[in-house]
Amino acid sequence: MSNFLQKFGAYWLGKLERLGRATLFLFHLVAALASLVKRPSLLVKQLHASGVMTLSIVLVSGLFVGMVLSLQFYNTLIDFGQEERVGTLVALTLVRELGPVVTGLLFAGRAGSAMTAEIGLMKATEQLSGLEMMAVDPFKRVFAPRFLAGFIALPMLAAMFSAVGVMGGHLVGVEVLGVDANAYWSQMHSSVSFTHDVCNGLVKGLVFGFVVSWISIFEGADCIPTSEGVSSATTRTVVYSSLAILGLDFLLTAVMF
């Protein structure tokens, strides 16, 4: 019995210790951000790796999510003769919830796991130690540009996701199912608020970008430097990021709307 208790306690102590390390890591990371002013080319390179490379999957999923939403809402609303509301519903769902959340999940899977694997492999092959030997701070050179790039790229991708999703909704709702095009856009226009809906969606994207980049980089830098360690760190990145996104989304929605 006491053996079991000891193991249980040790398990949670380990978790807490890891959380503490992650927090310290975050402070370190934020402090290193200032050095990017001197070398913006590092940031551009990472924006390419995490933003541009994720773009295609985000745009394609945005299109399909918008199309599916339009189809589902249409089928329900037609019973009430309110199918003109499809535009409003599609836009609100995308801008408020699905845009940031689905983009965040895709980003964690596509860019976050890549960041973890890259940094983990750098650690396993002792490139990070090598940098330190050459008096190059890996926080400034490796971690900070990736962190800022993820932080910036996610809300941008979320905005694109929502915009493309609305287009997809138009494609199915108006072109295929025959909702009046003017009604689709004007109903949407009159019930979506820029400050309340669009900007809050962007804030969600920023929060998710912050959390996903933090988790991805920390898992990479904290992994056991073996091939097995890197693989389990990559898995953890995706799992923790997804859970964090879904949990935070609920909290943010409760506060915002």
Binding site: H48, A163, V198
Partner: peptide, 27 residues
């Protein structure tokens, strides 16, 4: 090439924001 692509990415974002501001919401 990557700088050009990042520039295009930014433009695309601005375009998306424009759509969201002008067509989707009531700015």
């Amino acid at each position: 090439t990557s700088e050009i692509l990042v520039g295009l990415f930014m433009l695309l974002f601005l375009l998306a924001m424009f759509v969201l501001a002008m067509k989707v919401s009531n700015l």
